[in-house]
Amino acid sequence: MSHTPTAAGTARTVTQTVAAVVAVVFLLAGIAGFIPGLTTHYDQLTVAGHHSGAMLLGVFAVSVLHNLVHLAFGIAGLALARTGRGARAFLIGGGVVYLVLWLYGLLVDHGSGANFVPVNDADNWLHLGLGIGMIVLGLLPLSAGRPRADTR
């Protein structure tokens, strides 16, 4: 079935549900980046820059800025997932953003001040996967039939 009923009785497309799930994952990543234990070397968490020694799940370089970006991305994704077009825009546009971040991570010297996000090799692979995955999900015809009237 291509639509899931909501409490208000309106149908939600599969694309909207997928976008909302992706957005929630970003929210969880942003929150996890502020939780000692889930983030190792938490005492080395900096506001921004490559000097942050904090590592989400012991693998991904994070900073306060990095965590806040994940939170903002998740909030934007939930807001955009309210309509079919918004959900697609979030998935495709967000995928493009993550491909740009992947390129940034490949080109920036990880030990320089230009690495303000910060990123490491694990982040780069994650950004590539997120970019491709989000774009593919945004382009897939996940809902059969006619879209709802409020997908504009």
Rank of each mutant, 00 (worst) to 15 (best):
V136H: 06
Y42C: 05
I92V: 14
A7S: 11
R82P: 06
G111L: 12
G95L: 14
G53V: 09
I75L: 15
M134A: 05
F60V: 13
P5C: 03
M55V: 08
A81S: 15
R85Y: 11
H127K: 03
T4N: 08
A81K: 01
N124E: 13
I75V: 15
G138E: 01
G33Q: 04
F26A: 06
T40G: 11
T6C: 07
W125H: 02
Y98C: 02
P147Q: 05
A19M: 12
D123K: 03
G30T: 02
P5S: 05
H66W: 08
V25S: 10
S52G: 11
A32F: 10
V97L: 14
V64G: 01
Y98P: 00
G9E: 09
A11K: 09
I92F: 04
V96G: 00
T46V: 12
Y42I: 10
V21M: 12
A87E: 08
A8Q: 11
G94Y: 05
A144E: 06
M1G: 12
R82M: 13
R12N: 05
D43K: 09
N124H: 10
L130F: 10
F116S: 06
L91D: 02
I92T: 05
V62T: 09
I92D: 00
L130T: 00
A122Y: 06
A76F: 15
L107F: 13
F116Y: 15
A114Q: 11
V96T: 01
L71W: 07
L128T: 00
G33L: 08
V69T: 07
A87W: 07
A76G: 09
H127D: 03
L140M: 01
I135S: 02
G9F: 11
R152H: 13
L27Y: 01
R152T: 11
L99G: 01
N115E: 03
G105H: 02
R82Y: 10
A89C: 13
R152S: 11
N120L: 07
P5M: 07
L142H: 02
V69W: 06
I132V: 15
F26V: 02
A79H: 15
T4G: 01
M55R: 13
L107V: 12
V100K: 06
G37P: 08
P5G: 02
D150M: 05
A89H: 09
T13V: 09
V97F: 10
L99M: 11
A19N: 09
L68V: 15
H70Y: 14
N120W: 03
I132L: 14
A114F: 14
T6E: 10
T39S: 11
F90W: 07
T17G: 07
V18Y: 02
L140N: 00
S112V: 14
V18G: 01
Q16N: 12
G30P: 01
H51A: 15
R148V: 10
V119L: 12
A89Y: 10
M134Y: 02
G37F: 13
Q16H: 12
D43V: 10
G113P: 00
G93P: 06
S143D: 13
F60Y: 15
G113Y: 09
A122H: 04
Q16I: 12
A149C: 04
R12Q: 14
H70A: 09
L126C: 02
F60N: 04
A76V: 15
R148C: 06
G105W: 02
G77W: 06
A7M: 13
A72P: 04
V64W: 04
D121Q: 14
L128K: 01
L140K: 00
L103N: 01
A114M: 13
